[in-house]
Nucleic acid binder design. Sequence first.
DNA 1: GAGATATTTATACAATCGTCTAAATATGTC
DNA 2: GACATATTTAGACGATTGTATAAATATCTC
Lengths: 90, 90
Amino acid sequence: MDDSLFRALADPTRRRILELLTEKDRTAGEIAEQFPMAFASVSHHLGVLKAADLVATEREGQFIRYRLNTTVFQEVVRYFMTRFGGESNA
Amino acid sequence: MDDSLFRALADPTRRRILELLTEKDRTAGEIAEQFPMAFASVSHHLGVLKAADLVATEREGQFIRYRLNTTVFQEVVRYFMTRFGGESNA
DNA sequence: GAGATATTTATACAATCGTCTAAATATGTC
DNA sequence: GACATATTTAGACGATTGTATAAATATCTC
C-alpha cells in the first residue's frame, strides 16, 4: 500500500475532486471552476491525485479529461477490510 | 467524515501503530519500543490517532493501554464503498 | 515524601504542504 | 505565424507536520 495514496487522500479538496469524478469524468477546467482557489492550485492537486494513481488522464484537444481509477479504490477498501475488521457489518 | 481521520492515516508510523493494535491491545511503551524514534514522538502519534478517534485508551496503573476503535474503521470502509464503487468485488 | 517507572506536554526546528502569481507548454483558430 | 484558450510548471511564502530534547504529570514502591 503506497504512502502517496494516503497522503493524497489527506486533503479535503482532493477528496472533493474524487467525489466530483464519481459523478462523471471531467476536464481540468471543469474541476477547477468548482473551487474558490486558483486554477494552478487545483492543477497541483490533480497532479498529486495522478501521482497516487487515484485518477487517470486523457488529452482531448486543448482539454485534459480526468477520470477515477476505481481499481485503486478497491485496493483501499481491501486494505481496511483485511486489516481492521471491516468484515463485521460495514 | 472528519478531516482529522484522513490526516491521521496519512503517516506511515501511525498506520503501523494501527496494525500493531490489530493483533492485540498494547500499552504506550509497548508500542513505542517498536519504533526507532523517541518515545515522545510515538506519544505524539498516539495523540493524533486518539484525536481522530481511531484508538481509545484506558489507564492501568502506571500504564496506558491503547486499543483500536473498530467502529471508525467501519466508517472508513463505508465511506469508500458508497462513494467510489468498492461494491464491485473488493 | 523520595525515588523509580510510564507517559504526556512544551518548545524548537527542519521538512513538507497548500496556495499564490507569473511563466511556460500545448492545442485550436484565423 | 499570431493570438486565444486550456493546462501545467516554476518559484515564493506562510502554515502544518514529524521529530528531538527537556520538563511536567501520574502512578507505584519503599
